[in-house]
Amino acid sequence: MKDKFGLQRIRLSVQILYTILTNGYVYGYMQGKIYKGGLKYACVPGLNCYSCPGATFSCPLGALQSALNQRQIQVPFAVLGFFFLFGSIFGRFVCGWLCPFGLFQDLLHRIPLFQKRKQLPGHRMLKYGKYLVLAGLVLVGSSFLFDGFVKVPAFCKYLCPSGTLMGALPLLSVNEQLRSQVGGLFGWKLGLLLVLVGLSVKVYRPFCQYLCPLGAIYGWFNRFSLVQIHWEQEACISCGACQKACPVDLKPEQISVSTECMKCGKCMTACPVQCLHWRKIEKN
């Protein structure tokens, strides 16, 4: 497949630039400490563990769980505001273009090992896993799961591979005091990360497709978001090139409106008659 417009190169550049911007606090990596400046008042759209020594902004999922961890129940207006703003503008464009852990999985999938698969067997059921994680670990878990007398951010604690990759590994590599406290929980999280790393080489973005609660949230916004890929049905010659190129195997009529579409733009690159293109949401 030839990238006629260089769109996928642009996407890779955006992903790398965004990751550097949101995780580029070099002093933190060197000292094993985290950034404490004012930028951390704001959440970024993608998964962005704020315990990463390089993180310059806050993680929306971490912030949501932190709000749910409060002793008294409160509506997390600020975090909901971030979700609605990012979701209404981008939808799952965030996953395709702006998530550092998505970039990590994209790069792993480029490794020329194994025959590539778009989805896992049982995809029809497994794709609902991310909604289970959102409901079970993020919402219910963070509201009602206690460690002693303190509520725990259940998703971060038991699942988030981004926290292990971007937070734990860089911190533990330079901070001896933290290294001495490592126990079984870290073993579980490291094992999970390694499974996802191995799986990502063969399957396209397994974490995003099956486990990411952020993808579940932004997926709901997909059909309402400002950034849309428009399909001109009249111009379509039904060649199937877009579905073949789509990493999550969507038909042209599902592109952009499906909760699974990450708006990566590979369908636009593949279309021989350019009947798929970026467009803002339609006027009334």
Binding site: I34, Y35, K36, G38, K40, Y41, C43, C49, Y50, S51, A55, S58, C59, G62, A63, S66, A67, A78, V79, V152, P153, C156, K157, C160, G163, T164, G167, A168, L171, L172, L178, Q181, V182, L185, F186, W188, K189, L190
Partner: peptide, 14 residues
């Protein structure tokens, strides 16, 4: 959000 984000979250790093 800020208070949580400027402390190392031990749960997050396992």
């Amino acid at each position: 959000v800020y208070r949580k984000a400027v402390m190392i979250c031990l749960e997050c790093i396992g």
